[in-house]
Design a protein around this nucleic acid. Structure first.
Lengths: 194, 194, 194, 194
DNA sequence: AATGAATGAGGGTTCATTCAT
DNA sequence: GATGAATGAACCCTCATTCAT
């Protein structure tokens, strides 16, 4: 059993357990059990619980950013780029709900240095959204205003994803369209002068 | 020191500690210390940690609902009712950030029966929003669509409040106006047929 | 069971276990058992293993210094003061062998701040000897030379005490006389000019 | 890399690590790292941690005894033999402080059978001293008295070496002379009848 | 000859909780 | 009404050691 086999098993097990119980309630023993490893065996691969959390979050952020960039690579018009972001985020929420939950809920549990690194990577995601809105904007919004709007957008998306109100019954196409229309109308139609 | 004096002290101390560290990281010893009580003294008033969390969340929800209903009592037009909800929520976020944080983050840590009760009360808050949107709607949206839109709205508001991106520099009047315009344009301007 | 009853029990239990196995091999679980307490019960009185070691060493040093000062209070001539120190040290070694062993062997295991405090108190003991030798000296030895001689003396005494070579069969009176004569002849009869 | 090359590396690495941290605090992982070996690689040469400690102590005792015998081979008068022992011990303390520290501090950590063997070899060293004193003695001291005096002497020497009081600034020639004079005066000038 | 992988046992410490006083 | 004392369970982590390759 090579290390290449073990690491994915470990990170996936950790992701599932941490997503379900939260970082502080997820015991490292339970993670080891979920990874089919003894407690000491897990420590053979991971130096500490904090490092394990970082690994999980870092992988999740890589995955999320990767999917976003792949989707953006095929979208040229500003509107389609916005929709690509919305769709990607919602797809990620539904297909990788555990990962998104851990990113949003447990990142702050990271130790100082790890938290800085992870926060930077999450900011990169935010910046993707901000740049899309900047191009979309027709009224010369300031950076601060654009940032605020980006936060509104991501807040909406995470609000949908985090809450159990909206189940997987809703298909993502329709939801993307709904959020897209709502935000686009609001964003384009609302400005300083209105 | 009567029981009537103790309870507010206890719940406020618990609220602060839990908001700062999260429920599972907030030790009951630290809460007792913050309430200027001995450990066993705290147990004299509160039966368990879970019950204490419920007390805190229940009070927070009562406060939030009370403020919302007071604001709605003075608003008659649908638009002003929506703005009242937005303003109330943002004000609560800025003035009682700890309470909102605990509601959103720690409610799921409650034991089964308490969690059900608290969730119901939080749903009542959601329903206030849904009814506002129902009146506001001009296109005969279904209940499910209205619920979805309500979730979008609350997601936005919580997103703003939770994230550290938007500081207290922003004044609430302006923020309320911005969110209101954005959501209103989006909600009114976007419908099935658009 | 008041705290006045527990602390001596705890420190004595800790002293015995640590003396027998050495600080790092003495598990706090075993100390708790020896003190007839549960593990968590021990932590009710002592904040950490390091603090417990400091308590033990500090008490041991107080006891040693107390006995020395009591003995010195009755000795006036320089020779009798030297013999008082020798006798006290040997008596302490035989009657409180565990305490002396912990002082000599485990002091360096203390954490930084505790180690500084304990070392200072041990230095006070050393200075008692140095002052005795200073008065005894007839050749104007320098401070450094006196310190060196003090170390030789204490080295001898600890050497006897630590090693299992000399059992309690030897009575302390005779041993005191022997060491006293040997050291006194050497100290008085040996000097720079000899 | 033959086994003949590995063993010295291993024992030296083990000596350094054990001297610095003490046997129980010296992890076998750290020793392997210091020997530039993998953990399992170290176990290829050494069967257990206890065996490794024995190896280290045994080599140290061999070295100490070898140096002593070499020095005694050139000394004929009783006084010069005593000085040879003192000088050898002090030189060993300053040049091989780690080895002396491990002999004195960690021998008792050995498992039963190894401890017996090592103790016997250390007794051989003690006996060298005892025989020197026997010849030097002019008053017909008993074996027991001679053993006691030997312990005093070695106690002094180890006391000097172990304590940080006397640094390497002191040159060994002078220190040897000082200890020699002190002990000689004391030993020759003190007897039963004095 | 050499090592990565794996583990059982035990380390110090913290926790929510109970109870005699 | 109030609290010091006490505990069982669980926490994260390290250890010496073994074994398949």
């Amino acid at each position: 059993m090579s290390i290449a086999h073990r690491y994915p098993t470990i990170t996936q097990a950790a992701l599932q357990v941490i997503a379900r119980k939260g970082y502080h309630q997820a015991s490292i023993r339970e993670i080891a059990r979920a990874a089919d490893l003894s407690l000491a065996g897990l420590y053979h691969y991971v130096g500490s619980k904090d490092e394990l959390l970082f690994l999980v979050i870092d992988l999740a952020l890589d995955s999320l950013l990767g999917k976003l960039d792949a989707a953006l690579a095929e979208a040229v018009t500003p509107e389609s780029r916005l929709l690509a972001l919305i769709r990607t985020h919602l797809e990620f929420a539904f297909n990788h709900g555990a990962a998104l939950k851990v990113i949003n809920r447990d990142l702050e549990a990271l130790g100082d240095s790890h938290r800085v690194a992870a926060t930077q990577k999450r900011q990169a995601y935010l910046l993707r959204g901000l740049e899309i809105l900047r191009v979309l904007d027709s009224r010369g919004r300031s950076n601060e205003e654009l940032l605020s709007a980006t936060n509104l957008l991501l807040g909406m998306l995470n609000g949908i994803a985090t809450r159990p109100f909206v189940g997987p019954g809703r298909d993502i196409q329709a939801l993307t369209a709904e959020v897209g229309r709502l935000f686009l109308h609001g964003f384009l139609g609302s400005g300083k002068g209105n």
